Amino acid sequence: MCGGVEVAGRYTESGKPVRVYFPNPKAALPMLQADGSVEWLPWGRRQEQEGKLPATGWARVDSISAGKWARFHPREVWIVAERFMEKDPAGVSHWFDLEEGQAIEGLLVAAGEERRVYVVTSLPPPGCESIHGRWPLVRLAE
């Protein structure tokens, strides 16, 4: 389900790679902008956080297609990362590298002044079903 991402130093303030994990209430994800820069926005919303947007960090591709996110004015975005992490049923972390030019598909949504980005998920690729039943959509960044 993508519990974490590693972001390359070229996209961070420190210039060093950063790992971001969803359980951290301050977790934010870098979205690629048209000019090549990035904008960091909060990664979803946790149950205990204030806000009107869904309390989750993920958006299923089938729920997006069904219009369940429409009231939040969704916009497809690209999350730049070097790799992402999935935990298997035993709680063991597995890191998966993205290839050059790939990004994780995100869904940028808003409610009033609140803006957050959610990782878009679908079924896992063949051979990865035993790790987790939902997988981030990884595509070539457009």
Rank of each mutant, 00 (worst) to 15 (best):
E39Q: 13
E39D: 14
E39M: 14
E39R: 05
W40K: 02
W40C: 03
L41M: 06
L41R: 11
L41Y: 06
P42Q: 01
W43Q: 02
W43N: 07
G44R: 04
G44A: 11
G44T: 05
G44H: 03
R45T: 13
R45V: 14
R45I: 10
R45P: 09
R45L: 15
R46Y: 13
Q47F: 12
Q47I: 12
Q47Y: 13
E48L: 10
Q49M: 12
Q49W: 04
Q49T: 12
E50K: 14
E50Q: 05
E50C: 03
G51N: 10
G51P: 06
G51L: 08
K52G: 15
K52V: 03
K52L: 15
K52D: 15
K52P: 02
L53H: 10
L53T: 14
P54L: 11
P54Q: 06
P54C: 14
A55Q: 13
A55S: 15
A55K: 15
A55R: 13
A55L: 08
T56M: 06
G57L: 09
G57F: 07
W58G: 03
W58K: 02
W58Y: 12
W58F: 08
R60D: 14
R60H: 14
V61F: 07
D62K: 08
D62F: 08
S63R: 03
S63A: 02
S65N: 14
S65Y: 06
S65F: 08
G67E: 08
K68V: 00
W69N: 01
W69R: 10
R71G: 11
R71Q: 15
F72M: 00
F72R: 01
F72H: 09
H73G: 08
H73W: 07
P74L: 06
P74E: 10
R75L: 12
R75E: 15
R75T: 09
R75F: 00
E76W: 06
E76H: 07
V77C: 09
V77G: 03
V77Q: 02
W78D: 11
W78C: 04
W78E: 04
I79H: 00
I79G: 06
I79P: 04
V80A: 15
V80D: 02
V80Q: 05
A81G: 06
A81F: 10
R83V: 11
R83M: 13
F84Y: 14
F84V: 07
F84C: 13
M85S: 13
K87V: 01
K87D: 12
D88Y: 01
D88A: 01
D88C: 04
P89C: 02
P89Y: 02
P89E: 01
A90H: 14
A90Y: 11
G91I: 07
V92A: 01
V92P: 00
V92M: 05
V92Q: 05
S93K: 14
W95F: 12
F96M: 02
F96V: 13
F96Y: 14
F96A: 04
L98C: 10
E99P: 00
E99T: 03
E99R: 07
E99C: 05
E100L: 06
E100V: 04
G101W: 07
G101Y: 02
Q102T: 01
Q102A: 13
Q102W: 11
Q102G: 05
A103N: 00
A103L: 03
I104C: 02
I104F: 00
E105V: 09
E105Y: 00
